[in-house]
Amino acid sequence: MAEQVLYGVPVRTGFELFAAASAMAGFTEQAPLQLRELPAQQPLPTLPETFSLYHAHNRDLSLQSDRALAHSVAGQSWRMDVNDVVSFHWRGGDNLVHYQCHALGTQERLVFWFVHIFLPLYLTLERGHDFLHAAAVEVASRPVLFVAPSTGGKSTLADYFLQQGHPLLSDDKVATVMHGGQYYAVPSHPHHRPWREYEVLGDRVQNFATRARPIHAVYLLEQGEPDAEIAITEVTGFRKFEELIPNYLYSFRFLQEQRMRWLAQLADSIPVYRVHRPWNLERMDAVYRALRDHAAGVGEGCASGPLRGQTGSSGPE
């Protein structure tokens, strides 16, 4: 049985999900998750409570349970459906997940939906992970997060950092975990998708982060005119919380209170900066240098105030 670490959790499958990256460390003592196929002749349960998740990658997603949607309890039956492609079923408190492919199900699509969508949902419901819609890279071995709406340029910026030799931590969904009083960013999977195509994990990444580390800083990306000045300013107070809320994934109503408390604590403990940058690929290097140097100075007494313009030497630190 193959085993890979995804979002800090060992995942065991009957086939290799993708070519393994450098050995990645699990986060603390996470119990392994097993993924097994359910034979076609064995029907999946139809559950009475249905919740429409959202429309993604040209597919409708839904979540079902055998009771009103609330905190997962031991033995609770759950099912997630990707229309015409695949269904996943598990029971609360169990580390075994069954899947069953449908008419349009292929192994490539199974891997995509399991890794990119199902696992974050499962880990949110069952293991207390929290996910931000962000891209993340390492600067001097410290995770920095880029937050922006879809098509807001976070993956393009992360790709440029990757080209300059910085390890990628996550392309789209950043798993965060509290440990020892600090908020950690956990590596996702070694793929990067600076372009948009349905139901594919993306290009294979060799320089991928191998362990969870405390989050160093969060950068909120804003678009400017092509000739705009680069400006990095700190976000303070309640505005940090307000800026991060829209980028929180899987904010189910029954999780809302504890998730808002978690997000408020994260915002209170991690520096957040607004980045006004030119919407101009020809100036990407200047944006990269400004962000790289700013991130290197966070916590060193020189990055709390506004930064404007562009800065010096190239290459990761």
Score class of each variant (00 low, 15 high):
L281R: 01
T151M: 09
E222I: 02
K173V: 08
D268P: 02
Y184R: 15
S87V: 14
D66W: 08
F15R: 13
R193C: 07
V85F: 09
D94M: 00
V186C: 02
R109D: 05
S313K: 08
L169M: 15
A148G: 06
A264F: 10
S155L: 02
A103D: 11
E234C: 12
P278Q: 10
S155F: 01
R196F: 15
S251E: 00
R196G: 02
S251Y: 05
L169F: 08
G297K: 09
V82N: 06
E197V: 15
H98K: 07
A290K: 03
G301W: 03
L263W: 03
D171S: 14
A25P: 02
R213N: 04
H192M: 09
F146M: 07
Q34I: 14
A136G: 05
V174D: 06
A135Y: 09
H57L: 10
A231R: 13
S269C: 12
A20R: 12
H166Q: 05
E222Q: 14
R289V: 05
G165N: 13
T311N: 10
G128F: 07
H89F: 04
L63S: 04
Y219S: 08
L201F: 03
Y198V: 02
Y288R: 11
L255R: 13
V144R: 02
I232P: 02
L220A: 01
Q164K: 12
P45I: 08
P214F: 04
V235W: 04
G224A: 03
V287H: 00
G181H: 11
F114Q: 00
D66R: 03
L35P: 14
W195T: 04
V298Y: 04
H189L: 11
P214Q: 12
W279K: 00
R261I: 06
L104I: 01
N207T: 07
R292A: 12
G105V: 10
L201K: 12
P278H: 09
G8K: 01
F27C: 08
D268Q: 15
